[in-house]
């Protein structure tokens, strides 16, 4: 698949006519993923994580990957008995990395949505999330109505916040950035009136940076975050689901929270954020819905 895509792209630049046929060729779905046995055999698993989204996936001062997602990644590597190769990803690349087989699992704070479930397979969830909007203290935005028609809201390309605003509030002008680091700097520079993102992220930002308030702590529906694998990789998907259920028996995800998120969010958010063993506390049906999302999405097509 990878080679074919490359060839297709090469063809595109050479001649548009030949490109047409070659892209159709690249569109054919070959098996791009690796099964659990193949991963074990190779001795290394490739996991896509964020490198700039503290405290979920980031690189610490020693150059090591750290965070809530990475903590789970380390456990997965240990339980599979293989080395881990962390691949840094941007929000907009996550689906693509799985579709091209660049990584085996995406553990990059990946919110489960029906659109994404058409492209990748989600395992059981391990965290709750909604959208949030943070703004400077001197002009706190508590409702989207307060955003003027010339004001710009900062979002990161390829996130659920972007999709939500494009779909539900097309009148709001968005200022889009590629990466967390750039969006953060632009927001600090005052380039936009507010920043819309996962509420976990904006709460963390407001806690770490005085002068900012999360005026809208929960926007849109309550979603879950789950590991994702390439479409059709049932062997790895089933293994992950079993892993998440069995880790839940030892309260693994609460431990993960206490190790990685406690400093940022404090005790108060622990039960709101953590999903243990793939079962959200308030509604266990939600977890099943998330896991079955793939099937539902394909049926709906």
């Amino acid at each position: 698949m990878k080679k074919q895509t490359k060839a297709a792209l090469f063809g595109l630049t050479l001649a548009l006519t030949s490109a047409l046929s070659m892209t159709a060729f690249a569109g054919d779905s070959d098996k791009v993923y690796r099964t659990v046995d193949e991963i074990k055999e190779s001795g290394t698993i490739n996991i896509g994580v964020f490198s700039d989204k503290s405290p979920f996936g980031y690189v610490d001062e020693n150059g090591d990957y750290q965070g809530y997602d990475v903590y789970l990644g380390n456990q997965i590597g240990k339980d599979l008995g293989v080395d881990i190769n962390y691949v840094s990803t941007e929000a907009a690349n996550r689906v693509e990395y799985l579709k091209t087989g660049k990584v085996d699992i995406i553990l990059a704070n990946f919110t489960v949505t029906p659109e994404r479930a058409e492209e990748v397979d989600f395992a059981l969830p391990y965290m709750n999330v909604a959208l949030g909007v943070v703004s400077p203290d001197d002009h706190v935005i508590t409702s989207l109505d307060q955003i003027g028609k010339d004001d710009q809201v900062i979002v990161i390309s390829g996130t659920t916040a972007e999709t939500y605003l494009v779909k539900n509030n097309p009148e709001i002008k968005l200022q889009k950035y590629d990466a967390y680091a750039e969006a953060k700097t632009a927001f600090e520079n005052g380039s936009g009136v507010a920043w819309a993102n996962d509420n976990t992220e904006v709460i963390a930002f407001a806690n770490e940076n005085p002068g900012y308030t999360v005026g809208i702590p929960s926007l849109g529906s309550n979603d879950t975050i789950a590991p994702a694998v390439s479409k059709g990789n049932d062997s790895l998907l089933n293994w992950l689901n079993d892993e998440i259920v069995s880790l839940g028996k030892d309260n693994f995800f609460h431990k993960d929270y206490e190790e990685t998120l406690l400093d940022t969010y404090g005790k108060d958010y622990e039960d709101t954020l953590v999903i243990e063993g793939g079962q959200p506390a308030e509604a266990s049906t939600e977890a099943e819905a998330a896991a079955a999302e793939t099937e539902a999405a394909t049926e709906a097509e």
Binding site: A8, L9, L12, A19, T23, A26, G27, A91, A92, N93, V95, E96, K99, E115, R116, E118, E119, S157, G158, E162, T163, V166, K176, D178
Partner: peptide
């Protein structure tokens, strides 16, 4: 192109 791929994952169409 990157933005549309991120939102709708129609890679081949967007790159074309």
């Amino acid at each position: 192109a990157k933005d549309l791929i991120g939102m709708y994952a129609k890679t081949v169409e967007c790159l074309f």
